[in-house]
Design a protein around this nucleic acid. Structure first.
Lengths: 108, 108
DNA sequence: TTATATTATCGTAATATTGCAATATATAAA
DNA sequence: TTTATATATTGCAATATTACGATAATATAA
C-alpha cells in the first residue's frame, strides 16, 4: 500500500477500508462467489475452480480471513472455509446508509 | 497490484473488485464521507479537511473518479466533485444480493 | 497582461501487492 | 511408521500503491 497514514483516520473509516481492500481483487470476489455457490463449504475445490496456483489461493484466503470476510474450520485433514455473513452485513449496511442519505441531496 | 490476472475473471467480478479497490483506503472513505456531509459540493475544502497534501488528495480523487464513484464538474476556476450515486447503487445491490442469498445457507 | 487561486501532473522514494516454485506442516490412510 | 493428501509458509521477482515536493496547467481577478 505504500506509506499509508491509517492513524489519521477514524476506526470506522479504517474498518470499512480494510474490508473494501480485501474485496478489491477479482480473485477474492471469485472466491466469495464460489463459496456462495456451494451449499457445503468445500475448500480445496477453490484451487481447482480458479486459474491460480495453490499458494496464491491460500494467500487470498488469508487476506479474506484477516478482513473478517470468511471463517475457516478444520474438517479432518482439510479446512472448510465459509463466508462470515456478519462482516458482509457491516459493509452492506454502511453503503445502504450512505445511499439512503444521498437521495436527499442535490448535486452539481 | 503486482502481476494481476484480471483477464481470467468475469467483467462483473472485475467491476466489483475495481470499485471495492477504490474504496480500500481510509483517505478515500474519508473523502466520500466528507462529500456526503456537505450539501453543496465543495472541492478544495477536502485538502483542508484531511491530513494529506494537495497532490495526494488529487491522486485519491482521480482514483475515485476512475472507479466511477465520484463525478467532477468545472465551477469557475475550481472543480466541484460529488458522489456518483449510481455507482454506489451498483456495489450496494451486489452485497445486498449476496447477503440475502446467504441467509438460506447452512455453514460449517 | 500580470498576478492570484485552484487543481493536475511529474518525478521519486518507501512500501505493499501479486503470483508462484519450493518447502514445511499437519492430518488421514495404509 | 510410511505414504498420501491438504493447506500454509518462505523467498523472490515483477509490478502497484502511497505520499509529497516541485512544477505545470487553467481560469479568474486586478
Amino acid at each position: 500500500m505504500g506509506i499509508s497514514k491509517t492513524e489519521h483516520f477514524s476506526d470506522s473509516q479504517n474498518e470499512i477500508a480494510t474490508i473494501a481492500k480485501a474485496l478489491g481483487h477479482p480473485a477474492r470476489i471469485a472466491i466469495l462467489e464460489y463459496l456462495m455457490s456451494v451449499d457445503s463449504c468445500i475448500c480445496g475445490d477453490i484451487v481447482n475452480e480458479l486459474p491460480l496456483a495453490q499458494p496464491t489461493i491460500s494467500q487470498h484466503l488469508k487476506e479474506l480471513k484477516n478482513a473478517g470476510l470468511i471463517k475457516g474450520s478444520i474438517e479432518g485433514n482439510a479446512i472448510c472455509y465459509c463466508i462470515n455473513d456478519s462482516c458482509l452485513e457491516t459493509i452492506m449496511s454502511y453503503f445502504m446508509n450512505m445511499a439512503s442519505r444521498l437521495k436527499k441531496k442535490t448535486c452539481c
